[in-house]
């Protein structure tokens, strides 16, 4: 790849070289360094087997889940600028987002459909990993992390479901919380911890909000990073372990 003069002057500049500590990635060494010297890329291996790139092996479901998560963070932050988690103001701010905030309805649509999509894609991803036997050693623990990620995804979606504070969300959360209340011995206590009281109200809303915008997304980002990092540490995708003869 021949570079033009102005481009070379840019990439040779002191400022550029202080940011990117590798040369133009047109040779093996610099392509390796691009991956290892960049915090966003370093979860990837430097080289991948052609087998792990086969579309019909993964269907890209893991990446899709990560992409949907990113869309959720992005649209979620935009919604947070307007949404107020109080029983009096939650619903009016939802109306405001839909009616008077520029692209508000659209942002909310993206957030909602991405949330449903993420739950679906994460379930499909689990099925893919199961049916390809990718949970087998040495990847056992990464499967367990995946199960936790599935539960966190369900939790994030469920806590977000209450926030619009409409009839749909109110009664869905009531039904859901009642299920938790059926646990033997600890049931009523668990229900009360979840709701912050005996029924869905202001205390529930602020609990679900805090879980939804802070605790669960942070846990997700942490565990997704560990999950991806372990994929690399365990030798890439399980497809790489298949002998070439097949």
């Amino acid at each position: 790849m021949a570079q033009s003069k102005p481009l070379t002057r840019l990439t040779d500049s002191r400022v550029w070289r202080s940011v990117f500590r590798h040369g133009w990635p047109d040779n093996p060494l610099d392509r390796s360094l691009t991956m290892t010297s960049n915090i966003f890329f370093h979860l990837h291996p430097v080289k991948v087997s052609h087998k792990s790139l086969r579309w019909t092996y993964t269907f890209g479901l893991g990446i899709m889940a990560t992409v949907l998560y990113s869309v959720l963070v992005f649209t979620g932050i935009l919604l947070m600028f307007y949404y107020v988690p109080s029983v009096e103001r939650a619903y009016p701010t939802m109306k405001e987002i839909q009616l008077s905030v520029p692209l508000g309805q659209f942002t909310r649509n993206m957030h909602r459909w991405a949330a449903h999509g993420m739950v679906l894609v994460v379930i499909l991803h689990m099925a893919r990993v199961f049916y390809t036997g990718a949970y087998k050693p040495p990847r056992e623990f990464n499967w367990v992390i995946g199960v936790v990620l599935l539960l966190l995804t369900l939790g994030a979606s469920f806590t977000g479901y209450l926030l619009p504070w409409d009839q749909l969300s109110y009664w869905a959360i009531t039904v859901g919380a009642n299920i938790a209340g059926y646990a033997p011995v600890a049931g009523p206590v668990m229900r009360e911890i979840l709701l912050g009281g005996t029924e869905v109200g202001q205390d529930t809303l602020i609990r679900f909000y805090t879980l939804h915008i802070a605790l669960l997304p942070l846990s997700l980002v942490l565990l997704i990073s560990v999950h991806l990092w372990r994929v690399r540490k365990d030798g890439g995708l399980a497809a790489n372990d298949v002998p070439d003869a097949e």
Binding site: K95, Q105, N109, H111, W113, W165, D166, Q167
Partner: peptide
């Protein structure tokens, strides 16, 4: 999908 299908918003929660 977000252009054609709107996220639902029911009446305000009423215990």
């Amino acid at each position: 999908f977000s252009l054609v299908k709107q996220a639902p918003l029911d009446a305000i929660a009423n215990p």
